[in-house]
Design a protein around this nucleic acid. Structure first.
Lengths: 145, 145
DNA sequence: GTGCCACTTCAAGTATGCTTGAAGTCAACC
DNA sequence: GGTTGACTTCAAGCATACTTGAAGTGGCAC
């Protein structure tokens, strides 16, 4: 059965621009689609992959990180994934803290956010000298149109 | 008492570069520091503000959004903060999903991530036509050095 | 056969969040 | 007085994740 999708259909269903799909292909996030007279034809399963990509992207992984996660089996894939898992735990904790902070200031009406005592301790970034990237460094996702 | 900090000291304690601090001042995230013969002198309280900024930044808010949140009292500040709160709830949920997904693939050793059934449903991006920004669009944070 | 539309490639542009470089200033130490 | 080191401003550069524009192609309707 040839229930393949055009790039326009995939884009519409995934909530992306066609340019994003071409970019993902170029970056190796999705396999190059088969062609019919030059035009891309996608297997519907690409939609699921795009959902996974979108999920990881939303939670702060860069395209290169996602590519590494999705290309299983590379050397040290497992430690990489495990590291990412710990990052997610960190991220969940920080997001909870931010949520608490926002709740507090929404509730207490105090004028200075700084006095709220909510953030003290535990929020320092790692020192500059050495030690690699200080943070996971989430990416910028462009909103469609 | 003049226990004010130089920009270098603030940077070291906050885990930032001095260039970031100047940038934050320029962008209105922190008030312009007082000057001593041209050089910035910071009140130590700026460290707490920087921690708050870092926290919100880490959980996906842009500098402009953070500025709005920290400049309380502007028109519609409260609805803005409330909206951000809902965004955080979304983000926490999605991060949890990503975590589950990573856990699954780490555990099950299956070769295709697509078959894991973990992400189906609920992960579509909003349709393109109208409706404003499809996503909160977290920012890129440069890692120091 | 002539529109038209969705597609193609490729190069260049955009927004965010900074960093880097050039050129100069200030205070302190020798 | 000279050098050093941390600072100053300003302009330009960079990475990420795409978008946009130009110029052309393929197939279908009329």
């Amino acid at each position: 059965m040839a229930d393949l999708l055009t790039i326009g259909e995939v884009a519409a269903r995934a909530g992306l621009r066609t340019s994003a799909l071409r970019y993902y292909e170029e970056e190796g996030l999705v396999r190059p689609a088969s062609r019919e007279s030059g035009r891309r034809r996608y297997d519907p399963s690409v939609l699921h992959r795009l959902a996974v990509i979108g999920l990881f992207q939303d939670v702060g992984f860069s395209i290169r990180e996602i590519r590494r996660l999705l290309k299983r089996g590379g050397t040290a894939w497992r430690p990489h994934a495990a590291r990412k898992l710990r990052e997610l735990d960190d991220r969940i904790a920080r997001t909870g803290e931010a949520r608490e902070l926002l709740l507090t200031v929404l509730a207490c009406d105090c004028d200075r956010l700084e006095g709220c005592d909510r953030v003290r301790g535990g929020h320092r970034r790692r020192p500059l000298p050495g030690g690699g990237p200080a943070r996971p460094s989430p990416r910028t996702r462009r909103r469609p149109a």
